[in-house]
Computed example of a mutant assay.
Amino acid sequence: MSVAVASAPSRWKSVTLWVVRGLLALAFAAAGGAKLYGVPMLVEEFQHIGLGQWFRYLTGSLELFGALLILVPSLAAFGGLLLACIMVGATITHLFVIGGSPVPALVLLTLSAIVAYTKRSQFALFAIAP
């Protein structure tokens, strides 16, 4: 009886994390694809940021790369960290440059950080031992 009780939370935690990773991958793949495709609203938004359209291509590419990383079980922590960093930049940009609500960026930041934190043991695998 205690074995079933002990494994139940772990299974739900794993399933929940997969769902979050899947939703994040979909959201970032859609956003990155829209940036690379050149949706007029995004072209105008990045023009307003003032860094040039190369920044839209870079951001879109990084979002697509992060979406792929977050789906690979052994690289999910790195994907979560990359996407969280992108969302820190998006939040700052919304607050100080383009306006609008930073709430969607903050939600994606939080979910990405949860994935990175939950999979943090993956970072230790790449650490260089002295």
Rank of each mutant, 00 (worst) to 15 (best):
L75Y: 10
G100Q: 07
L68G: 15
A76K: 03
I98N: 13
K13I: 10
V103I: 15
A76I: 04
K35P: 01
G33H: 12
G66L: 06
G52Y: 07
S101V: 06
L58P: 07
K13S: 13
A84M: 00
R21L: 11
G80Y: 03
L109Y: 03
G100M: 08
Q53D: 15
A31H: 15
L75M: 13
G52S: 15
L83R: 02
L62K: 06
A27Y: 02
V19Y: 07
E45T: 13
V97H: 10
T110L: 13
S7K: 13
A8F: 15
L51S: 08
L71V: 12
F55D: 12
I49F: 03
L36C: 15
M41R: 14
I114W: 06
S10V: 13
V43I: 05
S74T: 13
G33R: 13
V39A: 08
A67S: 08
L83I: 06
P40C: 07
A116F: 06
L58Q: 07
L24N: 03
R21D: 10
L62A: 09
I86S: 00
F96R: 14
A77D: 03
F96H: 10
L111Y: 08
T91P: 00
A8P: 03
V88F: 05
A105W: 05
G99W: 04
L106G: 08
P40G: 02
W54S: 06
L95P: 01
I92L: 14
V115D: 13
L42S: 04
R11A: 12
A29K: 01
M87R: 07
F78W: 12
L58F: 11
A27W: 06
G66P: 02
E45H: 15
P104Y: 05
L106M: 15
G52A: 08
W12G: 11
M87W: 06
F96S: 14
G22F: 04
A116W: 03
Y117L: 14
Q47W: 13
F78K: 05
V97G: 00
V115Q: 05
A67N: 04
K35G: 04
A77E: 01
A31K: 00
G33P: 10
L58N: 00
G100K: 13
L23N: 09
I114M: 09
A113Q: 03
A30W: 09
G80V: 05
L62V: 09
L95D: 06
V20P: 02
F28G: 02
G33D: 10
K13C: 14
Y57V: 15
A76E: 07
F55W: 15
F55N: 10
V39Y: 04
A31I: 00
